[in-house]
Design a protein around this nucleic acid. Structure first.
Length: 766
DNA sequence: TCTTCAGTATTTTTT
DNA sequence: ATACTGAAGA
């Protein structure tokens, strides 16, 4: 198959969702009408765009032109004079989605899209709080804590409270606090029926107080504060309710209870909510998203005003049939079936490797083949369930000299050196920011050790003031190191008044010693470059109209550019830093692939325990969420889909024996093309339905040596069926050690999985 | 203050 | 395996 030619053929056979055939029939639903904006939309899309001024729920399947409908709806509302730009509020989850919407809108309508309220939940709430900081009982200079800052703040608090960090790990406390906030629960309302929970609530309360004192607002707090602001201030609430005539929500299935409540609060008697989402693509329950919001919205608002976008403009038929078949196994769906007129296309290729290395080798070979057929590398994606899986793949790709790009990892504003520089900036903006103070008070090192900090913290507690103020009050005593630090910050503040933002940062890098520090450090070159990049980013930010975006039009009051830049850094952490080669194979988790599409997709590591992930089974409806994740993965593919799994995989330093994912069994066999079959290893009860198939088409790279022989001990090998006098029949999952040390991991039917020392255990081969 | 070592955890992620 | 953390040693 030649991808280069097939590609062009595909694009002509599938009408592009963003510019398809013109003159399609006009809808009969509601006020649907002929309008240039509606050209090229299919019937349900048109109905959605032209939905009369009532609440509506759009069930938008994968690849059904969701964003197009959303943006066209906004453009249509404005062009038909139903609403002025000021009356629009469009909410997304990511900055990327918000940008995308603005970009498309500006291409559709001649108005200045800057006057629209389009943004993320957090961005919009932040804007509300900046504008109404007094009413929200915040200091004007309040700072946003990102996840790292928040954890540091909690950790510091736990130490100060003298709480046992073992019993109350800061990480867990952070999740606990955020989970409560996302349900709109303050420390005062939190339930506690046991001593441990009572202590957690106490810490939550202390954390609230600390944040208030320091003028710090974490991500969840942005939403909760904004919610409480609207709830408590009736005049303000009425103002915004009357202003926003149309609220449009993207990815509605990802909303958490607080976000839903926030939307309800903004929804006045004259407001119309247009919610777009796909319950089958709800994959963020673990971070508080609640699909139940969709049902609730349908029941209480949309009331039958539900439109399904089921025509898919992305994938070939077999891929959609597989996705539909899989997701049918979920209960409680709102119901939806994707279809396409693009034809069936190719079968879905299923490959079983002997090991994870084998799997990677196969993928490398296929990528080479696809490249020969003319498919650009960035049109190929390797999707996996967990980040750890990228390692083997990266290694294989590197060896083969294939350019690749891994998504995930640190982003620009999360890098250590950048955070350091920002901390100085934050201290200039708000000296009460203890998190920023502690980050840089001794970085670069200036002789301020643990003991001076302890004294400082004690002093601060007694004065009930920030560390900065405590330090400033102590400075009178002597020219201590702490005193010098305070003078340095004060110097920065005076020296930089009147300077432009990039000049401020540039000056700060010298004055703080950060630049010199990284110049002296042997591996500091990259970090230095990042610091220079920060200056550039600030320059771009200062020039960019986006800065103008933050001038509040309600009050006409320009907010400080510095504060805006800091908020920008927290709310938009920037691009992922991974090597960004243009012509590169894309590696990412299934989660981060949501919303993307590729001509060829490899779903990797389709094994029980990995995908679906074993940890997911603990959660309520965990398997269903994993299945939705698989659904998302499958629907990323346009033309060719590979499903790969391996018999053995290196996990946490040991070789684990793996069964094929149960999701493979949920796909109709007629859609699958088995690339190979390797000998069955499993004891009967784990029959996958195809492990008995004869070993045909064994490719040379499938050598039993890869995993078997290397992982044997005392005459036993991985995959072997054994019998134990006490535990009964089992199968060897892993082996390690030699001679007296030799141990094997065995999965028994009843007794579960155990490690046994061969020197002692009475194991018999079957 | 910087280095080193032992101990630990290891699904998914945006803001 | 490995990467990150916190605490003890040079």
């Amino acid at each position: 198959m030649n991808f280069a030619s097939d590609h062009s053929q595909l694009s002509s056979s599938i009408p592009d969702a963003f510019g398809g055939p013109v003159g399609a029939p006009v809808g009969v639903f509601g006020t649907a009408q002929a309008h240039p904006l509606l050209n090229g939309l299919n019937e349900p899309q048109k109905q959605a765009v032209c939905l009369p001024a009532e609440h509506g729920l759009i069930l938008a399947g994968a690849g059904s032109g969701k964003t197009r409908v959303l943006t066209t709806r906004i453009a249509w509302l404005m062009q038909t004079g139903q609403v002025s730009p000021q009356g629009i509020l469009a909410v997304t989850f990511t900055n990327k989605a918000a940008r995308e919407m603005l970009t498309r809108l500006s291409a559709m309508v001649p108005i200045n899209v800057r006057s629209l309220w389009v943004g993320t939940f957090h961005g919009l709430c932040h804007r509300l709080l900046r504008t109404h900081w007094r009413a929200a009982r915040l200091p004007e200079t309040f700072q946003i804590l990102d996840t790292g800052d928040q954890q540091a703040a909690i950790k510091r608090l736990i130490k100060a409270m003298g709480v046992d960090e073992e019993r109350f790990p800061p990480r867990d406390m952070m999740h606990y606090i955020n989970a409560l906030k996302e349900q709109g629960i303050r420390s005062g309302q939190a339930e506690a029926h046991d001593a441990h929970t009572r202590r957690k609530v106490e810490i939550y309360a202390e954390y609230e107080a600390q944040c208030q004192r320091e003028g710090a607002v974490d991500f969840a707090e942005l939403l909760l504060r904004a919610y409480e602001l609207l709830q408590q201030d009736e005049a303000l609430r009425t103002h915004y309710q009357q202003r926003f005539r149309h609220i449009l929500v993207d990815e509605f299935q990802d909303t958490n209870p607080l976000q839903y409540a926030w939307l309800q609060l903004l929804c006045g008697p004259q407001t119309v909510i247009f919610a777009v989402g796909d319950d089958d693509q709800s994959i963020y329950a673990f971070r508080g998203a609640d699909v139940a919001n969709m049902r609730a919205f349908e029941r209480n608002y949309a009331k039958g005003n539900v439109i399904r976008l089921e025509q898919n403009y992305r994938s070939h038929g077999n891929i959609l049939t597989a996705a539909n078949a899989l997701i049918t196994n979920n209960a409680d769906r709102l119901g939806k079936n994707l279809w396409t007129d693009a034809g069936e296309g190719e079968l879905i290729r299923v490959f079983q490797g002997v090991s994870d290395l084998d799997e990677a080798r196969y993928i490398v070979d296929e990528i080479r083949e696809l490249t020969r057929e003319g498919l650009p590398r960035h049109q190929m994606a390797l999707l996996y369930r967990s980040n750890a899986q990228s390692r083997v793949l990266e290694h294989a790709l590197f060896q083969a000299g294939i350019a690749y790009r891994v998504y995930g990892g640190l982003r620009f504003f999360e890098r250590m050196e950048v955070k350091h520089a920002l901390a100085y900036l934050r201290l200039i903006a708000n000296q009460d920011d203890d998190t920023a103070f502690l980050r840089v008070v001794n970085f670069p090192t200036r002789g301020i050790g643990a003991r001076s900090l302890e004294a400082l913290q004690l002093e601060a507690r007694q004065l009930n003031s920030s560390l900065y103020n405590a330090a400033a009050s102590l400075t009178g005593k002597a020219g201590t190191a702490v005193g010098q630090f305070i003078r340095m910050i004060e110097g920065l503040r005076t020296e930089t008044t009147g300077l432009s933002l990039p000049e401020v940062i540039d000056h700060l890098l010298d004055r703080s010693g950060l630049r010199q520090h990284y110049q002296a450090e042997k591996d500091g070159q990259d970090r230095l470059e990042n610091l220079e990049e920060l200056v550039n980013a600030a320059a771009t930010f200062a020039d960019d109209p986006e800065a103008a975006h933050n001038i509040d039009r309600d009050t006409g009051e320009a907010t400080s550019l510095l504060a805006d830049f800091l908020a920008h850094a927290a709310l938009e952490a920037g691009e992922h830093q991974a090597g960004d080669q243009d012509e590169a194979v894309q590696l990412m988790t299934v989660h981060s692939a949501k919303g993307l599409e590729f001509s060829a997709v490899f779903i990797v590591g389709l094994e029980q325990g990995l995908f679906p992930h074993e940890n997911a089974m603990m959660a309520r409806d965990g398997l269903e969420e994993e299945r939705r994740l698989m659904y998302v993965a499958i629907t990323r593919a346009r033309q060719r889909l590979y499903l790969c799994h391996a018999q053995t995989r290196m996990l946490h330093g040991q070789t684990r024996y793996c069964l094929p994912s149960s999701f493979l069994d949920e796909l109709p066999e007629a859609l699958l093309q088995r690339i190979n079959t390797v000998p069955a290893w499993s004891a009967g009860s784990y029959s996958t339905g195809w492990s008995e198939a004869p070993a045909v088409d064994m490719t040379t790279r499938v050598s039993a040596r890869a995993a078997g022989a290397a992982e044997s001990a005392g005459g036993f090998h991985v995959g072997q069926n054994v019998v134990h006098t006490k535990f009964g029949a089992g199968v060897i999952l892993a082996a390690e050690g030699r001679g007296e040390e030799a141990r094997v991991q065995v999965r028994f039917g009843q007794a579960g999985t155990k490690w046994l020392a061969l020197a002692y255990a009475k194991l018999e081969a079957v």
